[in-house]
Design a protein around this nucleic acid. Structure first.
Lengths: 164, 164
DNA sequence: TATTGTTATACTCTATAACTATA
DNA sequence: TATAGTTATAGAGTATAACAATA
């Protein structure tokens, strides 16, 4: 976890987190940035993920469950609450009489767009603490890591990247 | 968010995520690693954070609320459920008749230790996708970023680092 | 009076199980 | 029969408000 003791170099030396602790800490910081921005618009992380997934898809409830890794009953509740707020809309599938298609409303689209850009700005501001060359180096290393990780999981990282 | 289109370099070139998308993606990947390991022991992220915070502290309920950024009533419920599972113990404070001190039980300590080391191994395995020199460089950059960020927030990153 | 903590209440989020309607 | 979706129910997690006990 991020709670272990750290080796301390000399008193005045620049201290460095262990690689594991550093990544864990960073992940919490970024997660909290999104949580905070979403909360400003009364959105939970999962509501935000729902809207994010719908930005470039019009899935059935069933597909939504796979995309968000939720049980179909959880999806029913999640979509119901989002629909009540006017963020998404449900429509019967023309292709399958049992299925329901879920899509963003204009309001939902503008909301997810706002939160996304605010969150992006937060991350950008965080990255701005580094020099331009450090930033470029970090970005390259992170990409390399994610590409390798995605390959492991046989996930396509590029056609459309979501918060699933 | 992590759902924006990405600039695509040449067809065969090595693609790279935007800095913002890369960090966001990485943060989600790592968050999910912890979530999965904790779930294997029937722990939620917040229960895991509770145990993590208690590894080197014996706070009051009130302090716990500040450490975890939760309302005191939320802390009551959280600690109650953890206590029912035998993971933490409550004791009256000798110093203040109103206060309650919360600490890990042996079971709680061994549990948080297990999950932490499993999670650490997961992150290590992820990092292992990079060469040793890339890994070192990434670690250094991440540390630099977090140190700057902690300084902004006037947080002491080193005496004892937790998941708060 | 102010602070610490618990309890009552309400809502979100999640899963399991039972159900309806369609394929 | 199998699949898509909803509903009933139960529990974790969160917050607000009202309360009791102590400072």
């Amino acid at each position: 976890m991020a709670s272990q003791s750290i080796d301390r170099p000399g008193p005045a030396a620049t201290r460095e987190l262990s690689p594991v602790d550093g990544l864990a800490q960073l992940s919490f910081v970024i997660h909290r940035l999104l949580e905070r921005r979403a909360a400003e618009h009364d959105l939970s992380i999962i509501q935000m993920r729902l809207l994010g997934v719908l930005r470039d898809r019009r899935p059935t409830m069933n597909e939504l469950g796979r995309l968000l890794a939720l049980d179909k009953s959880s999806v029913s509740g999640l979509v119901e609450r989002a629909e009540r707020r006017g963020l998404v809309a449900r429509a019967p599938s023309p292709a399958d009489g049992r299925a329901v298609l879920v899509s963003l409303t204009d309001h939902g689209r503008s909301l997810v767009s706002d939160v996304s850009s605010q969150f992006g700005a937060d991350v950008f501001a965080l990255l701005n603490r580094l020099s331009a060359s450090d930033r470029r180096a970090l970005s390259r290393l992170v990409s390399r890591l994610l590409v390798a990780h995605a390959a492991d999981l046989e996930i396509d990282l590029f056609p459309s990247i979501d918060i699933d």
